[in-house]
Simulated assay, not measured.
Amino acid sequence: MIKVSVLYPNGPETKFDVDYYKNTHLPMIAQALGDALIGMELNIGLGGRVPGELAPYVAIAHLNFDSIASFKTSFEPHAATFAADVPNYTNVAGELQISEII
């Protein structure tokens, strides 16, 4: 099983609409990916290592798939649509990481 994580860096100028992301963007992704998506989790950053410090990431989304092939097959046809929606919820580019779940 693999986990695709999208990490949105935080900073003083970062804007991130959690409600839009949670209620519009992620459901759009879930619907488009269908049964290939076997799990999803959203984490919202609350703080960093030092009290009062910004969290390194304003949000992190985790999407689980059976394999990299399953992810690519389901995601690639919709990638442009997903990317076009980004300005509706944030002004930062997300970092993507694919990990093996052990």
Score class of each variant (00 low, 15 high):
residue 65 F to M: 02
residue 58 V to G: 04
residue 63 L to T: 02
residue 98 I to R: 00
residue 76 E to R: 08
residue 55 A to D: 03
residue 80 A to F: 05
residue 84 A to L: 04
residue 64 N to Q: 13
residue 52 G to E: 05
residue 67 S to T: 12
residue 59 A to D: 03
residue 64 N to V: 07
residue 78 H to A: 02
residue 91 N to F: 08
residue 57 Y to D: 09
residue 86 V to G: 05
residue 56 P to H: 11
residue 52 G to R: 08
residue 60 I to V: 15
residue 53 E to D: 15
residue 97 Q to Y: 04
residue 63 L to N: 01
residue 83 A to Q: 13
residue 53 E to P: 06
residue 52 G to K: 06
residue 71 F to L: 13
residue 95 E to Y: 08
residue 70 S to P: 04
residue 80 A to T: 08
residue 54 L to Y: 09
residue 75 F to P: 00
residue 80 A to L: 10
residue 100 E to M: 12
residue 76 E to Q: 13
residue 79 A to H: 10
residue 88 N to W: 05
residue 90 T to D: 05
residue 67 S to N: 06
residue 88 N to K: 14
residue 67 S to F: 01
residue 93 A to L: 12
residue 83 A to H: 09
residue 69 A to V: 12
residue 74 S to C: 10
residue 97 Q to A: 10
residue 67 S to A: 04
residue 69 A to T: 13
residue 81 T to E: 15
residue 52 G to C: 07
residue 68 I to K: 08
residue 82 F to V: 04
residue 70 S to F: 05
residue 89 Y to N: 02
residue 58 V to S: 07
residue 93 A to T: 14
residue 99 S to M: 09
residue 94 G to V: 03
residue 51 P to Y: 11
residue 64 N to G: 10
residue 98 I to F: 04
residue 59 A to Y: 02
residue 68 I to Q: 11
residue 86 V to Q: 07
residue 81 T to A: 15
residue 52 G to H: 07
residue 77 P to C: 04
residue 76 E to G: 00
residue 61 A to Q: 00
residue 67 S to I: 02
residue 86 V to I: 14
residue 81 T to Q: 15
residue 65 F to A: 01
residue 93 A to N: 12
residue 84 A to G: 11
residue 81 T to F: 09
residue 80 A to N: 12
residue 96 L to A: 11
residue 100 E to W: 09
residue 54 L to T: 08
residue 79 A to Y: 07
residue 73 T to Y: 07
residue 68 I to E: 11
residue 55 A to R: 00
residue 56 P to N: 13
residue 91 N to Q: 08
residue 93 A to V: 10
residue 94 G to T: 01
residue 74 S to E: 06
residue 84 A to S: 15
residue 73 T to E: 15
residue 83 A to K: 15
residue 53 E to V: 06
residue 76 E to Y: 09
residue 58 V to A: 11
residue 96 L to C: 09
residue 87 P to K: 02
residue 84 A to C: 06
residue 75 F to S: 02
residue 86 V to K: 02
residue 102 I to W: 08
residue 94 G to C: 01
residue 81 T to D: 14
